[in-house]
Simulated scan of single mutants.
Amino acid sequence: MKKTLLLAGVALTFGLVAASGARADIKMGVAGPITGSIASFGAQLKNGAEQAVEDINKQGGILGEKIVLSVGDDNADPKQGVSVANKFAGEGVKFVIGHFNSGVSIPASEVYNDAGMLMISPASTNPTLTERDMWNVFRTCGRDDQQGAVAGAYLASHFNGKNVAVVHDKTPYGKGLADETQKTMESKGLKPVLYEGVNPGEKDYSALVSKLKGANVDVVYFGGLHPEAGLIIRQMRDQGLKTPLMSGDGIVSSEFTSIAGPGSDGTLMTFAPDPRKNEAAKAVVEEFKAKNYDPEAYTLYSYAGFQIIKQAAEEAKSLDPKKVAEVMHSGKVFKTVLGDISFDKKGDITRPDYVMYVWKKGADGKINYVGNELTN
């Protein structure tokens, strides 16, 4: 009888330990446009997150706890982004990598702040995101005022005395980037001959192209994302306008050229140095390629967010988001696939770096972005 009770006690103890272990899993989320016209960007964030979770869990997790990942589809819509944020909060998620669009990240971050959750956006570049004195908001990318400074200086240098058009998609990201670019351009003496806004999701840009032709533009700067940029280029070429287009990191997707067609050859673009070429990313890039996936654009920015949370939590010896945030705000340097990263008190990275690329046709006949020798 005693032996039976003893065995029952052992079983009960084992069960409690197992249950405790199950409850010890740390819940993290990744959010972005998993569906919709820019789902390619959502896939980048999701793939980066899933690979990071797989790798970290293989290494024993964070402070001995395994990561359980939740995926949220915001469809690039602010209201749906808030719904995703509330869903994560209800599930007990403590850390979120996301969102993609600045117009989604900004309202979602308010929910995360109220719920005591920490977020790291891999891609939202609007300055407002980190200008609101919020403890919980970070990003692994740069800002539009930094990117716009590079783009505006390039335009002023290489299109001095030329007719420049500035077009944007009216979103916090697109308009914000276009305005920052224009601000720098004008500070260097180059004023645009045309400033126009278009609606995201439009399919017919013939009226815009007619205005561009009427203004005899030499270059079009576009603040927005690749679906609209691609269609504008295609319709420019269809109407005989061979003027090059220049844009920002919102067109860093292989889908851009499939939408724009051959006319995308010669498109200028600002983006950070290609993270796939960073020595710190070599092993992870090989992991992705073994799965027949090219970790382009923001894939590694998403992956880096998980690396940072792991290192910050281990430094804090805690998975309390506020304690993790304190470490992240402390100036600590984190080792990531993007290279060394540290944050300022706002949550911005301290090494903003944007360079110029040009989309060119390669020997294989495919058009892809490469470093532009005209940058310097």
Rank of each mutant, 00 (worst) to 15 (best):
F138T: 02
G176K: 00
E50C: 13
Q51P: 02
E315V: 11
G250K: 01
A115T: 09
L208T: 09
K335A: 02
K310R: 11
T4K: 15
A22V: 10
M185L: 05
L231I: 13
V53Y: 09
Q44N: 14
H168V: 07
L16W: 15
G15W: 15
T270M: 12
S302M: 04
R234T: 10
N376K: 12
N368D: 15
T299W: 02
E314A: 01
M119Y: 08
V104F: 00
K79D: 11
V111N: 04
K162H: 01
T270D: 04
Q235M: 07
S20H: 14
N278S: 07
Y298R: 10
N101A: 10
G64N: 11
G61F: 00
K310W: 01
N113M: 12
P200Q: 13
T350G: 01
E287I: 02
D344T: 07
I67C: 04
A283T: 13
S40G: 03
S258F: 10
G176I: 03
V166A: 01
E196L: 07
I251L: 03
K213V: 09
W359S: 12
I341Y: 01
A260S: 03
I97F: 02
N372T: 09
M185T: 01
Q239E: 15
G152F: 02
W135C: 11
Y303V: 00
R143E: 13
F138N: 04
Q44P: 03
T336K: 00
V84N: 07
A313M: 04
T4P: 03
P227W: 00
V150D: 00
S40T: 15
K170H: 07
Q239I: 03
I251Y: 00
G189Q: 06
M1G: 15
E65N: 12
T125G: 10
Y112S: 04
F256Y: 15
A76E: 10
S210C: 08
A149Y: 03
L245S: 04
Y173Q: 08
M28Y: 04
M1T: 15
S124K: 00
V10N: 13
E186I: 07
A178T: 07
G142N: 04
V166M: 05
G266W: 11
A215G: 12
N216Q: 14
Y154G: 13
S124V: 08
T336Y: 02
A313R: 03
T130P: 06
E91Q: 15
L118F: 11
M328D: 05
E202A: 15
A49S: 13
E279I: 03
K345Y: 00
V193T: 12
R139I: 00
K346I: 08
P273H: 05
S83A: 11
R23I: 13
L7Y: 14
A215Q: 14
D73T: 06
G29H: 06
E287S: 11
V355G: 13
A325C: 10
C141I: 12
D294M: 12
A325M: 12
T243H: 14
A229Y: 14
P295G: 01
R132K: 14
K346V: 08
Y293R: 00
F95I: 05
K46Q: 12
K211N: 11
D169A: 04
P273W: 07
Y357Q: 07
P262S: 13
D218V: 01
A281V: 06
K322T: 08
D114H: 12
S109E: 08
A11R: 09
D364R: 00
